[in-house]
Write a protein that binds this DNA or RNA. Sequence first.
DNA 1: CAGTGGCCCTGAGCGC
DNA 2: TGCGCTCAGGGCCACT
Length: 275
Amino acid sequence: MPELPEVEITRQGFADALQGARLLDLRLGKPLRWPLGVSAKALQGARLGLACRRGKYIWLPLDRPEPLGGLLLHLGMSGSLAFTPEPQVLGPHQHLAIDTSQGCLTLTDPRRFGAAVWSPALDASPARELLARLGAEPFDPALDARTLHAGLKGRRVPIKQALLAGDVVVGAGNIYACEALWQAGIHPATPAARVGPARAERLLGAVRAVLSDALAAGGSTLRDFSSSLGAIGRYQSLVAVYGREGEPCPRCRTAVKRIVQGQRSTFFCPTCQRR
DNA sequence: CAGTGGCCCTGAGCGC
DNA sequence: TGCGCTCAGGGCCACT
């Protein structure tokens, strides 16, 4: 479900409201990808800081008032966070509830690929290892086409899979990687190394444009994404190729093709996108 | 050591 | 209606 825009919109939906709240309790449902790594009791009474985002992870800092680490959250494929004024009874797919003096944050995740892991700090284990392979933030001003090009150099993987891997630039998942490549006119099967400086420049611009358009539209709602306040995304109606196999390319009217790369569907225009 | 495929898990949708 | 199959917005990890 959630790529960078959805995660960021989720974060924005509760970050301010929860900042400074007192953690009253932490309730767990079924196991997520990894164990929490701390007892609820150890966190009771902690003060919540301002939630921030790194890639598709959300970091929720805790203090008591001395630093108490924080919770690293990931929504996996099917996760969503809901912020409500009152504590919620955990439903069958709700596997984490953070009850605070200022509201309740509930993680719903049917497939349970998501995670909530306590770490003593962002740069300490286990958060450090989980974030270690992440590439640059797409909107980091320090990221430029030269850096992107350098990150792609020498790699034989198709550019689509290099984007998805997120070790050069984070944030573009399956939808936005397809959309960015369409916008940049790059065939998804192009070996990453064959994306030269000029195309790297176009690709970076396209990744940024697609992600910022999606942010402005409140993300994409394919099945059930909504923000932590329950708002529905509108980007799916702006999508050019993703999920549109057989439909005309918005630019040239050629039928959109679907291929499989690394067990994930890729959608692209065989006319507009060149190897 | 880069690249590949398996796998974690549940639900929806579709053809029969 | 029910069964079995495929597919789904992610990413770690073992293996080649």
